[in-house]
Computed example of a mutant assay.
Amino acid sequence: MTTEYDDSAENNDPHTALCARIEKVSAPSMSSAAKHLLDALLEKFPTSAALFYGSGASVSSHEDPTNIIFDFYIIGPSYDALYDSGMLGLANKIMPPNVFYFETPSPEGVLRAKYAVLTLEHFEKLVSPKTFHSYFWARFAQPCRIYDPKNQMRARLENALAQSIISFCANSAGLVGNEFTAKELWLAGLNASYKAELRAEDSDRASKLIESYGDWAASVTAPALRAAGFTVTTSGEKLKISESAKPAAFPWRMRAIAGAGLSVARLLKGTQTFNGGIDYIAWKIKRHSGIDVQITDWERKHPLLGAPGAGLRYYRLRAKQKNA
């Protein structure tokens, strides 16, 4: 039997239904390691909140948090409040986001994170239909946690995350026709977003992610499409939209073309903003190969100039390790 999709038993407004789902998913308590990192970070940004996603968000209690790089977005009220440097604020406005490396001691050992920085207003714009490229709205259509100890931004962040899902589903609908499952739409959209960022993901990466999210795709896709203006009916796991979705192949090709330049530009900018990045790379090398490159203070101060020397030491140490 085919029926009109019911977004919520209490309220049939699709955006409200999305926010209710986001509130439930983003609220659970996080690990002690993640909380320790976030508390330390928010000491640096006392007027801010944080979004928490990626491998750190899904880590189970038996995994060692010192082997994880946690991923955070620090969301602040203004770039003046976030930075002492006007140049950093300007860079964040022109080519968002700025990305930094952070580590802190804890009872569990040294904890590490990458964190990006945006203002709340800028974040709201970047996940809206006004933003053509998928970099932000494809990321935050996926489930994440909100950490807002002062409860100053939670409602607006929930609305912005709902808008991410709406933007993602609306832009992905044209990839799967008028009848599809939620998983089919998310597979098509996530794989297209990887190509738009030149991300070398395994062919089954998107499928594994969707499975790890449980009923996320099934619970948010129909209300997101309805919020985007589609009329949605369901038959079992199948969703059907009565309107023809706009052709999506050409826009996604354009996102891939634009994404190539954006990816290179973000990498180049990251060499200037990713403070401590050379230590992060050395840690990764030691973790995967057992080789301790031992970064010098001069290399930390001049990472672009110091990187070749550190790389040469690595190759010498690796050759010595092989010959031992």
Rank of each mutant, 00 (worst) to 15 (best):
C19N: 15
V176G: 01
V232L: 04
G174N: 09
A162Y: 11
S48W: 04
I241E: 00
P77M: 03
S207P: 00
G229F: 06
S244P: 00
A217R: 02
A138E: 10
L90C: 02
P143S: 03
C169E: 01
Y213G: 03
T231Y: 08
W298P: 06
R266Q: 14
D13T: 08
A265V: 10
N171T: 07
K301I: 01
P28M: 02
N191L: 13
V293K: 05
A50Q: 02
L267V: 15
L268D: 14
A200H: 00
A173T: 04
P308S: 09
A20H: 09
L262S: 12
L111M: 03
E121T: 03
M153E: 14
P105W: 08
I165S: 08
A196H: 01
R226C: 11
L187F: 06
Y101E: 01
Y280H: 13
A248G: 06
P97K: 12
Y147I: 03
W252H: 01
C169V: 08
N67S: 15
S235P: 00
L41K: 00
A260P: 04
I94Y: 05
F52I: 08
S263L: 11
E197F: 05
L51W: 03
G259W: 05
D80F: 15
T231A: 10
L51S: 00
Y53K: 12
L88Y: 00
A27C: 09
I257C: 08
T3R: 11
F274W: 06
C169H: 00
G189M: 04
S85A: 09
D279I: 14
I69H: 14
V99C: 12
Y314G: 03
R287F: 11
K208C: 14
F274L: 14
I295A: 08
F123W: 04
